[in-house]
Write a protein that binds this DNA or RNA. Structure first.
Length: 482
DNA sequence: CGAGAGTACTATAAAGTACTCTCGGTGCATTATT
């Protein structure tokens, strides 16, 4: 198949005239039977990649996905688009339904599973019967972020791929720096020379970047209230604490006329689903959320993302602000910082660490029946033949990595030069030589006066929602100053 | 880490002081109860 044929195939089967950036390259690699790691921004049509390959190869595709809600969305989307041979094997299927699916597995072409489900013997037995064309690891950064921390089954994917006979693998993510990319490949047990990478820039030129330093928490709250009052359109405010989510969500409801809702892992799934729906339907203006909110949120006109707390890494930060402005219109990312904020992130890092004492204890008295989070991880390493010393090393490295990530985040907060270049540099991208006109609070057009920023800038920003209006906004700022 | 809440003490009534404790995220699957 040459590129002309590829485009014809696209037109005939999907009705698109052209590929989006990166798509053709990925499809070329896959058709040449090359494992592929694709870092493509959200909205660049990642689903199409494996749909295309499935259609072309007439073989089955297994998609490993981190969240049940993501799987459900994908299944209904593919069904809506006309594929009937789609299923998600999850704990939400009734026992007899699941039996039916496993017994008739060849009937399905696109099969979604969680890493946990993939590791179950009956599931593996069924999947081995497939004529398997491709395994997709969706949201592949989870492999690096969640696997070694609290979802050990992510680490088992490696073994499961072997058992499936080393199938062709497509790794997909929107945000992954060099370290994460290396980690993804290693944790899947792949060799670097077996993997082709297709990497698009993480930079989002339509998102203005700013870090605001505030004296204390009450100043921060006041500034937040001002921002939420002034900013138009929908926004997301990220927190590192569920308690603060609830608290500030109530504060904003009381002090602004915006419709504000909380969102975090303590809400039950029906509540979460409802809030998500209302957000999508513009019945909510502002979501106060923990990191639980994000993956699978497909709203393209989020106008601003504010961080009340410091995320644990620049990668998380870029991921979270990247949810703004998918429609390409002017949007803004605001990080509110008070000296000492990093202690919350650091405390979370420490609590994620497994102590040497616990490792020693477990190795003296291993017990595979224990179900705690730490113990499940330990159990994984124990049953895979690691020594206590090796495991201590692994946890120590993880801890060091988390601390390094946090240091980078602190460096961003204190960065005195272009914030966009800081991010680009961390993601190994070449820097912009001449700054774009409207870039970040270091671009020379900002004079350090937040009061003026709030009144003039934000009003302008939210009334002009076209990227072409940057110049107008800029002019207005200058006029206001002179 | 360090702020803020909670508790104990004082010493005979209420309220101030000093100390201790807590905070602090991300999900799958499974199972035993309502």
């Amino acid at each position: 198949m040459n590129d002309t044929e590829r485009i014809t195939f696209l037109q005939t089967n999907f009705g698109f005239k052209n590929f989006r950036p990166g798509q053709l390259e990925v499809i070329q690699h896959l058709q040449n039977q090359r494992n592929t790691l694709a870092i493509l921004p959200t909205g660049s049509g990642k689903t199409l990649l494996y749909q295309y390959y499935g259609l072309w190869s007439h073989k089955s595709v297994i998609v490993i996905s981190p969240l049940l809600s993501l799987m459900q969305d994908q299944v209904s989307r593919l069904q809506y688009l006309g594929s009937k041979r789609v299923v998600a094997i999850t704990s939400q299927l009734a026992f007899n339904e699941r039996q039916y699916v496993l017994n008739h597995i060849k009937h399905y072409q696109y099969i979604y599973v969680s890493p946990e489900m993939l590791d179950q013997e009956p599931v593996k037995v069924a999947l081995r019967q497939l004529e398997l064309g491709l395994v997709v690891v969706d949201e592949a950064h989870c492999l690096s972020e969640w696997g070694p921390d609290f979802r050990p089954d992510y680490l088992s994917i490696k073994d499961n791929l072997l058992e499936l006979g080393n199938p062709l693998v497509l790794m997909l993510s929107a945000t992954a720096d060099e370290t994460t990319r290396t980690d993804i490949i290693t944790k899947l047990g792949l060799q670097f020379d077996q993997v082709n990478q297709v990497i698009k820039s993480v930079d989002r030129p339509n998102i203005y970047l700013t870090v605001q330093h505030l004296e204390n928490e009450s100043d921060k709250n006041m500034q937040l209230i001002e921002l939420v009052k002034k900013l138009r359109g929908t926004g997301v405010i990220y927190f590192s604490s569920k308690k603060k989510v609830n608290e500030i969500s109530q504060l904003l409801t009381a002090k602004t006329n915006k419709r504000v809702m909380p969102y975090h892992g303590d809400l039950d799934s029906s509540q979460r689903e409802m809030i998500q729906q209302q957000f999508m339907n513009n019945q909510i203006d502002v979501i106060c959320a923990t990191s639980a909110f994000g993956m699978g949120i497909d709203k393209n006109d989020i106008r601003y993302v504010i961080h009340y707390h410091l995320p644990g890494s620049l990668q998380s930060y870029v991921q979270e602000i990247g949810r703004a402005g998918r429609d390409g219109a002017a949007s803004i990312a605001i990080l509110l910082y008070t000296t000492g904020d990093e202690y919350i992130a650091r405390a979370l890092n420490d609590s994620a660490n497994v102590t040497d004492e616990l490792v020693d204890y477990y190795w003296r008295k291993p017990n595979p029946d224990l179900t705690g989070q730490d113990v499940r991880l330990l159990n994984y390493y124990f049953t895979h033949g690691y020594s206590a010393e090796q495991v201590k090393q692994i946890f120590a490295n993880q801890q060091r990595k988390r601390e390094n990530n946090l240091q980078k985040m602190i460096a961003y907060v204190n960065c005195a030069t272009c914030l966009r270049n800081f991010i680009k540099n961390e993601f190994g991208e070449s820097l912009q030589v001449t700054e774009q006109q409207f870039c970040c609070d270091k671009d020379g057009h900002f004079n350090g006066d937040w009061q003026q920023f709030n009144t003039t800038f934000l009003t302008e920003l939210s009334t002009n929602s076209s990227i072409k209006s940057w110049q107008e906004v800029l002019n207005h700022l200058f006029l206001a100053k002179n």
